[in-house]
Simulated assay, not measured.
Amino acid sequence: MTTRLNPYLNFRSQAREALEFYHSALGGTIEMMTFADGGMSEGPADADLIMHGAVISEDGLTIFAADTPASMPDPVVGTAVNISLSTYEGDLTPVWDKLTEGAEIVQPFELAPWGDRFGLFNDKFGIAWLVNQGPGEPPA
């Protein structure tokens, strides 16, 4: 059995924009279903909001996102949870460069004391990211 743990991000009305942004950085495919598509629209204001969306990269990364309808409380955005993107193969610089457009850089993507390149930022939607690029084999 294959099990995956994927981030599922909630927005008030920015899910479409966020999914398109993440797709531009990660590539792969993008899927979006509106509340109207799913027969769950509570009215015209919610019809075009994203009920469920996903970006599925060619590397197997998946980010889910949805809008919160007006009838529900605002989602809480913050840094209590971080999306961690890491590799021990290849270069994450192009992904870092794209994802940090409009972001608050907390720690630049540079050599860290443990020998990997590491960076931390809050993207333009307020989502916290950790990016780690190791020089070789992952730790055991």
Rank of each mutant, 00 (worst) to 15 (best):
M1I: 14
N6L: 13
Y8T: 03
R12Q: 11
Q14N: 09
S24F: 02
A25W: 07
G28K: 05
G28A: 05
T29W: 00
T29Q: 13
E31K: 07
E31Q: 10
M32F: 03
G38Q: 10
G39P: 03
G39W: 02
S41V: 10
D46S: 14
L49M: 11
I50F: 05
A54W: 00
I56E: 14
S57Q: 00
E58L: 11
G60W: 01
D67P: 02
T68S: 14
M72G: 07
P75Q: 06
P75L: 01
P75M: 04
V77W: 00
V77M: 08
G78Q: 01
A80Q: 06
N82I: 00
N82R: 01
I83T: 02
S84L: 11
S86K: 01
S86D: 04
T87I: 01
E89R: 11
G90F: 02
D97A: 08
D97F: 02
K98Q: 12
K98D: 03
T100P: 01
E101T: 11
G102R: 09
E104R: 15
Q107G: 10
Q107C: 07
E110T: 13
P113T: 09
F118I: 14
G119P: 01
L120P: 01
F121K: 10
F121C: 15
D123G: 07
G126D: 07
I127F: 13
A128G: 15
A128S: 15
V131G: 06
Q133R: 13
Q133A: 15
G134S: 08
